[in-house]
């Protein structure tokens, strides 16, 4: 069935367009796709993961975390929301927040070696992914600290990498996380 040109345009404007692509996805292709469509597109070994638009609740907590961290972050560290982090030449993720050790970079992605901490705010859509596959690929890439924040429980867990595996080193209490590594901060997760 043929669509009119107008209908085609409308469909294109309101859709995610996944190109015909019967091969493993490459880093360059994923960078292009994500930029074009303003969506969070992540790559793991040739597979794409396209995350839905985040909920208001997710963004609200994320915003508050950003403000709180920004206020206490030492100048030699940089906080960035939703940037591409390159874990390997076939793995690209977009953490909710990343704290980087080389401020002022301008590339399409931050290399994993420059990332001291990644933060993920869990949502119904991302919980399995953040606690499962993402945890594994962050560990594989040697990212020292991984902070998982749960808005439903107003709680947070900090994982630290040791000998290639994450273990829990810090947990919030009463809705507040007292962070000491890689910087000192008091993060209020409530409300």
């Amino acid at each position: 069935m043929a669509n009119s040109v107008d209908q085609d345009i409308a469909l294109l404007e309101h859709s995610l367009a996944i190109p015909y692509h019967p091969h493993p996805w490459t880093l360059d292709e994923v960078l292009a796709l994500g930029d074009e469509q303003g969506l969070r597109v992540e790559l793991c070994d040739g597979m794409l993961h396209v995350g839905p638009t985040p909920s208001r609740r997710h963004q609200r907590l994320l915003g508050r975390l950003m403000v709180a961290i920004d206020q206490v972050l030492p100048r030699e560290l940089e906080l960035l929301p939703a940037v591409n982090v390159l874990l390997s030449d076939s793995r690209l993720v977009v953490p909710d927040l990343s704290v980087n050790v080389e401020p002022g970079g301008t590339g399409a992605y931050v290399p994993a070696e420059q990332v001291a901490l990644v933060v993920e705010v869990l949502s119904a859509s991302s919980r399995l992914y953040d606690t499962g596959l993402k945890r594994q690929v962050y560990a594989d890439a040697g990212i020292k600290h991984y902070l998982l924040v749960d808005p439903d429980a107003a709680s947070a867990t900090l994982l630290e990498l040791d000998f290639g595996e994450y273990s829990e080193v810090n947990r919030s209490a009463g809705g507040i996380l007292y962070l000491t590594d890689p910087f000192t901060a008091e993060l209020d997760l409530r409300g």
Partner: peptide, 12 residues
């Protein structure tokens, strides 16, 4: 194209 918790997973 698969669906996992509302996210799309696209594999060759």
């Amino acid at each position: 194209i698969e669906l996992v918790d509302g996210a799309l997973v696209v594999s060759p």
